[in-house]
Nucleic acid binder design. Structure first.
Length: 592
RNA sequence: GGGAGCAUAGCGAAGCUGGUUAUCGCGUCGGCCUGUCAAGCCGAAGAUCACGGGUUCGAUCCCCGUUGUUCUCGCCA
């Protein structure tokens, strides 16, 4: 190898190298044989260079060149030469030169490829994941993994500059009762006992605050044993941050600074220095989501005032049952939306529990189609009230409040995509604040919306127990382009308040002590007020890269079925391993 | 756990209301070709139409089930 080790990369040759002898190492990207003259596009991480085998080349070189196939790994020694003006390729960085080959060594052959290595592979995802090492050679994957690295670097750069310390926390920890399902790791030394993999470093970063590290961060791997999604993996990476002696505003400012730095450094994009803020209730009421897509308007509007003067009994019943009737006005959409297309929107609404989706079109003669006949008596009032004009489509949703806003919100989002109501290459950050601290679960008991260690806002402290549903927390989400990018809160550092929260959600003191007593114990020793946030690195990079799946920015992801086609895991293990761990496997029989 | 979509050569796709020798592009193999850069031209091989059942004279196409996969609701403090 030594004689044929590269002296330059495939991305750096320019006309200034004219006449120089160089050695390139790389992969055969394209191979074009014209009979007399023969071109090889050689690719490495840094670019592509055209190699020419001239007609007067030695028999040896001609034979080797003819044997070359896609993705052979080769070393080529040759002379750089300027291309004549007419042959310059302006689409290639190295397009003003080519390399005349004097020696070619095949370093490794390549089997027939399962799929072509192109900018973006067109093969189905299972195949891409099975041969991930080939998929990762593609230009698109290379760019995304590079962006991910750049984002991680910019993160460290910014947080270090702000006085944060990067600290590792354990990945073998104690299982916690709340939240997602834990991945469990059996202990060989302690039969019948288990570690859990962290869902996040939450408790440890809080303890680091008790320990006077003041400003902590970690690019931390987290594990949650829940069903995967396009934007969710069983294992993912978050930029975990915690600070002492801070208010929510300090966290907003720090996070805005971090995002500005990341976007500037990696994509040269200037973000606004302060992000929009929306309360949870406003977000739900106007966009039907706690992670609203804010790159287009088309707000949800209250329609209930028009319901009593109409004979449409469905909505009357909804209001009698303390539900909500909401509307969105889709500008100029009336001609484009057939009954069939509206039915498709209705299907989306139904996924969120809606029974149906009512609609009518605005025409010069009045409302038309759908529920038009019930509302034509209020045509002018409704058009004025909703700011609807001729050719608009009005969509109406009546249901309990949450179903009404979330299902219509989902319809809104889909219309935004269908009608291209925004530029998908732009970025819109927004804080969602004033989240409720508690909500009732299906059994009618209170539980924490976020997690148990979030602080109630000051003015609820005295009367928290009277109406837990009203209590807002010092809780915030950062939303980017309709994705929840980060979540955080100011934490409870006062053991008394913590006890009251446990009591509201029905956790007994012994139970709390058993589960996370070490944290509560630490709070007895002068714990400082503290708070933090944790942006998801995978999601951030995904959105920056304009992708819709987190798998496009993770080198070796699991698929949607929570498996890895490349190394075929999870897999069965040797019975001896099971025995050594004092475990017994019993696979439930599937019922028909 | 529920719902929806998809499954046709190695890869990506076409195949209209059921009758085709199952089509096209890329790739593979062979040949030709002196300037390409998505090279071109000629030729060849390559398909249990995911699997199992049903309807039918006849199924890639319709129906049921299974498997795989993607999206989604639940779930994800």
């Amino acid at each position: 190898m030594k004689e044929m080790q590269r002296t330059v990369t495939c991305g750096e040759l320019r006309k200034e190298f004219d006449g120089k002898e160089i050695i390139l190492n790389g992969w055969v990207h394209k191979n074009r044989n014209h009979g007399g003259v023969h071109f090889i596009n050689l690719r490495d991480k840094y670019g592509v260079t055209q190699v020419v085998i001239d007609e007067d080349a030695s028999e040896d070189i001609l034979n080797i060149a003819n044997d070359l196939k896609y993705e052979y790994c080769v070393a080529i020694k040759g002379i750089v030469r300027k291309r004549p003006d007419s042959m310059i390729n302006p689409d290639m960085k190295t397009g003003e030169i080519e390399v005349s080959a004097k020696e070619i060594v095949i370093l490794n052959k390549c089997d027939t490829l399962p799929f072509m290595i192109e900018e973006e592979s067109k093969a189905n995802e299972t195949l891409r994941l099975k041969y991930r090492y080939l998929d990762l050679r593609s230009d698109g994957m290379q760019k995304r993994i590079k962006l991910r690295s750049d984002v991680a670097y910019a993160t460290r750069e910014y947080l270090n500059s702000q006085g944060f310390m990067e600290i590792e926390t354990p990945t073998l920890i104690k299982a916690t009762p709340e939240g997602a399902r834990d991945f469990l790791v059996p202990s060989r030394i302690h039969p019948g006992k288990f570690f859990a993999l962290p869902q996040s470093p939450q408790l440890y970063k809080q303890i680091l605050m008790v320990s006077n590290f003041d400003k902590y961060f970690q690019i931390a791997r987290c594990y949650r044993d829940e069903d995967a999604r396009g934007d969710r993996q069983l294992e993912f990476t978050q930029i975990d941050i915690e600070q002492s002696f801070v208010s929510a505003n300090d966290i907003y400012k720090m996070t805005e600074g971090l995002m500005c730095h990341i976007f500037k450094k990696t994509m040269n994009i200037e973000l606004p220095t302060q992000f929009q803020r929306l309360t949870y209730m406003d977000a739900m009421n106007t966009y039907g989501s706690d992670k609203p897509e804010l790159r287009f308007d088309m707000k949800l509007q209250d329609f209930s005032s028009y319901v009593p003067n109409s004979d449409f009994s469905v909505f009357k019943t909804v209001l009698d049952n303390k539900g909500a009737v909401r509307a969105i006005v889709v500008p100029d959409a009336a001609p484009d939306y057939s009954r069939k297309k509206i039915t498709e929107l209705e299907e989306i609404a139904k996924q969120y529990g809606a029974n149906g989706l009512a609609w009518m079109k605005v025409t010069p003669e009045g409302f038309d189609g759908g529920v038009a006949k019930f509302y034509n008596n209020q045509f002018t009032e409704i058009c004025n009230g909703l700011s609807a004009k001729n050719n608009d489509l009005i969509l109406l949703m009546g249901a309990d409040w949450k179903t009404s806003v979330t299902s219509l919100g989902a319809v809104r989002k889909q219309i935004g995509i269908d009608r291209k109501l925004y530029d998908p290459s732009t970025f819109h950050f927004c804080w969602i604040v004033d989240f409720p601290l508690f909500e009732k679960n299906d059994e009618g008991n209170w539980e924490a919306c976020h997690h148990l260690f979030s602080m109630p806002q000051d003015h609820y402290l005295d009367t928290m127990e009277e109406n837990p549903g009203e209590v807002k927390g010092d809780l915030y989400d950062l939303v980017l382009n309709g994705y929840e990018l980060a979540s955080g809160s100011i934490r409870v550092h006062d053991p008394e308040i913590q006890k009251r929260i446990f009591s509201i959600v029905g956790i007994k003191e012994e139970e709390a002590m058993e589960k996370f007593g070490f944290l509560l114990e630490s709070f007895k020793f002068g714990a400082p007020p503290h708070g933090g946030i944790a942006p998801g690195l995978d999601r951030l990079v995904m959105i920056m890269a304009g992708e819709e799946s987190i798998r496009e920015v993770i080198p070796f992801p699991k698929n949607a079925m929570a498996m890895s086609p490349m190394d075929d895991c999870p897999a069965e293990v040797d019975p001896e391993q099971i025995r050594e761990l004092s475990l017994k496997i019993e696979i439930p029989v599937k019922e028909k």
